[in-house]
Design a protein around this nucleic acid. Structure first.
Lengths: 247, 247
DNA sequence: CGCGTTTTTGAAGCCCCTCAAGTGTAGTGG
DNA sequence: CCACTACACTTGAGGGGCTTCAAAAACGCG
């Protein structure tokens, strides 16, 4: 379990070493989960006193549509938390599940709140991470509404490499990505058949390799231009832009 | 300007009369805006110390796509705030503009924070309203990704009548709705032409009337069943479901 | 090596798009 | 009061992107 999971928060707001240490101390009993494991069930009373952090692998938020289709509404990877709010609504209309084999840690809300009480910088970092997530949701709405399958696929792949590269200075263009094409279909709102054809077209153009659980971006610049990908919506590097209170 | 704008918050968390009074005192200098007026510009440095509340009419969050299309990512109506966070990110990737002629009030963040400091119930109410908004965003992602034009239109109209009815016990099935069909297209991610044909089909079936700035739902039950509309994602009535801290 | 899952391929069809033109409708000024 | 303008709505035609259904090929795991 990479102990750098927590450091990702520092991309949103600078953290003191003590805050980082206290966060790490809070993350205990990591659990290995198989792909497809429910972390939080939709409809569950969400007031159970536990939050989760992904240490390794991928998870997603999802909604089950009345017809039974699963639509994925957000991605979670190493360093992402399922929920960082101190309050919850009585019911939740989405679930969280692993997309790949993953390592996930439970955190008691009580301890979490205790740490937040001692570290104002952590409160700010989590708040900004939350704002960034809302920005991502808005971008997803716009992409689903307006972009073609090819553009959405390109955009998703750009987002993926950006997010796995959150810890490093430069982009990792070859990443482990054991998603089934059916998962990509649920991410993009497409049929699995069309996902397949879209990937094949991109492979044939020499844009990407995407086989046997690995993604390799062969021509990142062209992928960016197809996707019209502007990484500012991820709000990485927020910490370096003179963080400050509003007003 | 309806002074019940603030009361909407009480749907998320019970508020003391003093909290409501202090909120109302904070809302000063309402401004009448024509439809299509920018309230916050995307890309603007959002750290200006002002938030806005809609008192009358409709506004929206939107993203301008690289091609120039506008995609609306969220609706705001009477009682909705543009931003209730105490912190902001360095840049914003969306804007807020009026969709109809509207009355909007400015609130200084400093005063806003002062009121929050005195009323814990308001902090909880705003936090829950924020969670509800995220729930709406996820529902929009799923709808854009998976529903047909007809289903999306039906769902949007159901959401609209639910949201204008936030103050009353029962649903208002006839509401003023001066949206152009082009606005509906930007809301639904459709072409204006197809919005027109979709509306016409619904009119012909006796589902709705939607003309000259008024919407009337003629057969709400059938509209709900077409949309597969489950209002729980709006999280109204949250306040009556034993509000409580997590953990 | 065998079996379940995933990926690939083909065919047919519908949903929604774009382009383009025509019909209202509201507001303005002569 | 009517002509004029600007804009919103409506209608038609044609095309393409994505879907569904169905089946074959390839992969991966015991």
């Amino acid at each position: 379990m990479p102990d750098f999971a927590v450091e990702k928060l520092a991309r949103y707001h600078p953290l003191t070493p003590q805050a980082i240490a206290d966060m790490k101390a809070m993350i205990e009993q990591p659990v290995a989960m198989k792909h497809g494991t429910e972390i939080m069930r939709d409809g569950d009373d969400p007031r159970r006193g536990t939050i989760f952090v992904i240490l390794k692998g991928w998870a997603c938020r999802y909604i089950i549509m009345p017809g039974g289709d699963r639509q994925i509404t957000g991605l979670l990877t190493a360093g992402d938390f399922t929920d960082t709010r101190t309050i919850k609504l009585a019911v939740s209309n989405f679930g969280v599940m692993t997309l790949t084999d993953a390592t996930v840690a439970r955190i008691s809300s009580a301890r979490f709140k205790g740490v937040l009480d001692r570290h104002r910088d952590l409160v700010l970092a989590f708040a900004k991470a939350q704002l960034a997530e809302e920005s991502i949701m808005q971008t997803w709405i716009a992409n689903m509404a307006r972009k073609s399958a090819r553009e959405r696929m390109a955009h998703l792949l750009c987002e993926i490499v950006s997010r796995v590269s959150a810890y490093s200075e430069d982009l990792r263009l070859m990443v482990k990505l054991p998603f089934a094409q059916a998962d990509l279909a649920d991410l993009l709102g497409l049929s699995p058949v069309h996902v397949n054809r879209t990937i094949q077209a991109m492979r044939a153009e020499g844009l990407i390799q995407l086989r046997s659980k690995w993604l390799e971006i062969s021509d990142y610049n062209r992928l960016v231009s197809i996707a019209e990908f502007d990484p500012s919506y991820l709000h990485y590097g927020e910490a370096s832009r003179q963080p400050e209170l509003a007003a």
